[in-house]
Simulated scan of single mutants.
Amino acid sequence: MRSKPADLDESLLTSTLEAWGIEATGAAYAPVGFGDHHWIATGADGRRWFLTAATLPAEPDERGSRAAFRELGRALETAAALSATLGFVVAHVPDLDGGALLRPLAPRYALSVFPFVEGVTGDFGDEPSDQERAQVIDLLAELHATPPPPSAPLRPLEPAGRAALERALAETGRPWTGGPYAERARALLARHAGALRARLRDFDRGSRDLGPLVLTHGEPHPGNLLRHRGRCLLVDWDTVGLAVPERDLWLVARTPEDLARYAAATGRTPDPAALALYRLRWSLDDVAGYVAWFRAPHGHTRDAELSWQFLTGAVDDLADGVASAL
């Protein structure tokens, strides 16, 4: 995220890091990524660490937060297990008190710690070169062939935010009061409600048994690639889990040659319909996530501005998809 979380006392970072045996002399906020918050901490020994404060859902009875904490913990355990055999996995560091990979930081946050790795990352919308796409496809082929550890969660095809999106579509007839973008988001959804419902029906028509499941990263886009000493590493394994290969491939493959490279490495030919279905799923989940943001309490921040841009772009893309299909 571009802005520090207003409801998180940064002094909790240094005190919580003691569980990892890190005596932090400082922590600088890193305005990178979107969704979670990050810092770069420096220990008394001069070593640097990359910290992630994952945002958990706010629930009055905290059941949602506890479930999200457990699910995230399973994902981190999976990444840690993979890092023992796959050299491109940048995994979290276990703490010294029982080897936990995730610790509560505040009611709405959970802290994980990475070794700081020098390298260059991209952004979600970047277009990788042919050579870089080939490298990532090779990494995915290796990942997909790896036996999943017992901790690997199942990642269903159904969009995670579908229920929230359908609820929002049903409630565009009354005011939304989350903050400065709430009414704009309501008007946007109301204007495109028919198109969005049509895309949900398109998704339902395309849903089917897509074949054997493999271990997938979930978001292998340029923003989660770290270019380190001439090779690509994959970071941000929060979304790791069991699904069909197309869950990863739609984000990477751009040409028939890309798909042929994957098929040659794995013996499994990607399904064009499944690639399109996961592309649609991503857009629907994007809209659901940003709408939930604007229906909840929020302010006029840089992150809110970016979220509004992303939401309008995602809604426009989905509406255009309906128009072209018709």
Score class of each variant (00 low, 15 high):
residue 249 L to H: 07
residue 39 W to Y: 03
residue 285 D to K: 04
residue 179 G to C: 04
residue 66 R to W: 08
residue 243 A to Q: 08
residue 25 T to Q: 13
residue 186 R to E: 03
residue 1 M to R: 11
residue 252 V to I: 03
residue 259 L to M: 10
residue 91 A to T: 00
residue 118 E to K: 12
residue 5 P to W: 04
residue 172 T to F: 06
residue 257 E to R: 14
residue 31 P to A: 12
residue 13 L to W: 07
residue 120 V to T: 13
residue 199 R to I: 00
residue 88 F to W: 05
residue 102 L to K: 03
residue 322 V to S: 05
residue 74 R to Y: 12
residue 44 A to H: 10
residue 117 V to M: 01
residue 85 T to V: 14
residue 244 V to T: 15
residue 165 L to Y: 03
residue 274 A to L: 06
residue 7 D to N: 04
residue 33 G to W: 00
residue 178 G to A: 03
residue 23 E to C: 14
residue 12 L to W: 14
residue 56 L to V: 08
residue 222 P to W: 01
residue 6 A to P: 11
residue 272 P to N: 07
residue 235 V to L: 12
residue 74 R to L: 15
residue 70 R to E: 15
residue 105 L to E: 02
residue 230 G to V: 00
residue 26 G to R: 08
residue 7 D to H: 01
residue 44 A to R: 15
residue 34 F to A: 06
residue 113 V to C: 01
residue 88 F to I: 03
residue 143 L to T: 11
residue 263 A to V: 14
residue 281 R to Q: 09
residue 158 E to H: 11
residue 202 D to T: 07
residue 105 L to Y: 04
residue 310 F to A: 11
residue 316 D to N: 11
residue 174 R to F: 12
residue 191 R to S: 14
residue 166 E to R: 15
residue 129 S to N: 09
residue 282 W to K: 14
residue 217 H to W: 05
residue 233 L to I: 04
residue 176 W to M: 07
residue 175 P to W: 07
residue 231 R to H: 06
residue 71 E to M: 11
residue 72 L to A: 07
residue 104 P to T: 04
residue 88 F to D: 01
residue 238 D to R: 10
residue 130 D to W: 04
residue 197 R to N: 11
residue 140 L to K: 07
residue 258 D to L: 07
residue 19 A to M: 10
